[in-house]
Design a protein around this nucleic acid. Structure first.
Lengths: 164, 164
DNA sequence: TTTATGTTTCAATTATTTTTGAAAGTTTAA
DNA sequence: TTAAACTTTCAAAAATAATTGAAACATAAA
């Protein structure tokens, strides 16, 4: 396999993987492209490389910037805006995990807490409901806390434990 | 908030949460319903409660059974098939994490390994590509291993570290 | 058998999400 | 200013995913 094929395969796989996790294909592919590019790319480059429209590119770049994993950079002497992605994978993971947690996990945890707090009227249904939603809340809350702690020191963890 | 409202809210939230993570709404809602039900439910019960069609219910129950988090149970004296969900949240988490890893993460890791193994022709593009896809592979591989280990002993982990 | 009860499948429909492309908007340079 | 270079926005179109409902398929009881 040579470069061009590997590149195609990487971009495709990354796009498909993103889709499975609720990130749209174009966004994941733009990210993939920037992630492996040694220099910043302009919108034109991205459109051409991925064969997607100007509007699509613009919107998804904006999305990636909202996530905080892509930034505008200024290339001296150039009128165009250039983009580059966060290159440190640990930092990348940290940003994505924190952001998804904040946007999706935390609101769900909040609701779980609310609904598990209804008054116990003694019925089997209510008892089961309280028990199960509490269990889910505890699990989610624990997992979330754990994840944050882990991610905050994952760099450290990796260098200590990664088998080479 | 009383039971009925809390139940609605829980089912709705769980459905929305599922959608954000690539699980369709009906599937997540069926799971939510079974998860809080003290007894197994028949297809009829589920359809009525969620207001979805027979076909939809059938297909998504099948999906949940493929995931291994819902099972058929036999209710003596009943012709109908009844369904119940895995009730232990830790076990539930374990199953989902393992299954998603197997179906989605592992294939991606495999591709990352493949593409990061192209021959280095010395160009900046190739060098960056190899460096970045390798980094991604290492990260994904490490995270996956870590997750599996953690999940295998998460019950233990929770009782040790959870702040009450 | 035959009937009654219940489940699965799948083509067609409906809903949702993504993508396009052109008009409107910005910014820089002349 | 005005023009040129470039970006953003957003309504419409296209693509994708979810849902329905009825026919086909099972299975147990009469």
């Amino acid at each position: 396999m040579e470069f061009k094929e590997a590149k195609q395969k990487f971009i495709g796989t990354w796009g498909a993987f993103g889709s499975l996790w609720g990130i749209n294909k174009a966004m994941a592919q733009i990210h993939a492209l920037l992630f492996i590019s040694p220099e910043p790319l302009a919108m034109e480059d991205i459109m051409d490389e991925l064969g997607i429209s100007r509007g699509n590119t613009s919107m998804n770049l904006r999305g990636l910037m909202d996530w905080g994993i892509v930034h505008k950079v200024n290339v001296p002497g150039e009128r165009k805006e250039y983009f580059e992605s966060e290159k440190d994978v640990v930092e990348l993971t940290r940003i994505i995990a924190k952001e998804r947690s904040r946007r999706e996990l935390q609101p769900t945890i909040k609701t779980l807490k609310e609904v598990s707090n209804i008054k116990d009227d003694g019925s089997a249904k209510t008892k089961e409901f309280i028990k199960q939603t509490k269990a889910l809340h505890d699990m989610a809350d624990t997992a979330s806390t754990m994840m944050h702690k882990m991610i905050d020191q994952v760099q450290n963890w990796i260098s200590k434990t990664m088998v080479k």
